[in-house]
Design a protein around this nucleic acid. Structure first.
Lengths: 197, 197
DNA sequence: CTCCCCCTGTCGCATAGGCAACACATTCCG
DNA sequence: CGGAATGTGTTGCCTATGCGACAGGGGGAG
């Protein structure tokens, strides 16, 4: 068996997954997510179809895992709220910007209902994890505003901000926008939690 | 042993070679061919360095094989001179156009001497093979203009035309330019060979 | 209805490619 | 000068991936 538990993957694995994600994005832009078949994806990625199934259950699973991966930088770099430290967020924005065609499809109002639903779920889930990690004390404390309430409003605001940014004609740089997002989130959180220190 | 002699490669082989060619092109554009190391190429291609050496002797070999591959469509599709049949040429032009940064470096007057020399050699070699195949009778016939003379002038003209096209600010479409090239080559060849029929 | 075509998942076997280590050359810096 | 750092080629072993075949499942046209 010998499961690899450390983060260092075999280079082949890394390359295969990246190719498939790339092919998913391009294919979705070209003919839409629902019309896209596993064969389409693997042909484009130059990966054998059987290999696809060694990594993913189906195209939905691929999408989900890809969206998960998008956020990992955020969690690793962390600490949006602290001074000037949001490299993770900037990485995320760069990824979104690079394939903005795709993510506009995923996020946008005209999107496939499945896709947009899934994306919002992912967004919320990751925001939740992030905030629980950043403010562990807030989760349990009954005196403050209910954690779930605060979390819901913040992640909703963040989603809207992202969507707004993606749909701009000439979007500002990831760095600039990251700064704005940081400010928004900061302003929302400070009144609730900051004074406790 | 069991050498694969048919054209159908293992998908992995195809993918690996494509990745390495792509990395060569991008790397050359970014930091120049001479400054580029094998490590650079393999890192960018997400291919292990040892795998590189299973396919190529060194970066020069990679370049040479890549340039060879570029022309294969020409030889397979063939028949530039015949009516409207130059799909191979169009494919070639599309490739050149897609990475015109790179090929301008390779072809251009300011290019690295090794690169430009190698490219011109390749061009001549493929032109020669092509013409020998298209006009097999001309090679031996002592009555016509010497084959080598004709071939030299034609391939030189073709190289200049290609370079001209690559250096245009707003180049015409591959289809349009292919048509022009066909006309040039046709006009050069017809007086010599066509009347023999 | 059947036939045909393309899709999905899954399998066993063959192999290309990853990894780690090697000797050796080179540059560069104290 | 000497050694750290980085590059080139090469090797042996292990494994992810390709290939081909399979059963099963829609749909579309006769």
């Amino acid at each position: 068996m010998m499961q690899k538990l450390d983060g260092s993957e075999d280079l082949r694995v890394h390359r295969t997954r990246k190719s498939l994600e790339q092919a998913l994005i391009e294919g979705t832009v070209e003919k839409g997510f629902e019309a896209l078949t596993v064969r389409d994806i693997t042909r484009r990625a130059m990966v054998n179809r059987s290999t696809f199934y060694r990594h993913y259950l189906d195209k939905y699973d691929l999408l989900e895992q890809h969206l998960n991966a998008i956020y990992q930088g955020l969690e690793e770099e962390g600490r949006i709220v602290e001074e000037g430290r949001y490299e993770g967020l900037i990485e995320l924005l760069k990824q979104l910007q690079q394939f903005s065609n795709f993510y506009r499809l995923v996020l946008g109002t005209h999107s496939d209902t499945f896709l947009s639903l899934r994306f919002r779920q992912q967004t919320q889930q990751h925001c939740r994890a992030y905030f629980q990690q950043t403010f562990p004390e807030a989760t349990a404390d009954p005196d403050t505003l209910p954690f779930d309430l605060k979390f819901t409003t913040v992640s909703s605001a963040a989603s809207s901000a992202l969507l707004w940014w993606l749909e701009q004609e000439r979007p500002s740089t990831p760095e600039q926008f990251a700064h704005w997002m940081q400010q928004i989130v900061y302003d929302m959180l400070v009144p609730t939690f900051k004074q406790k220190k």
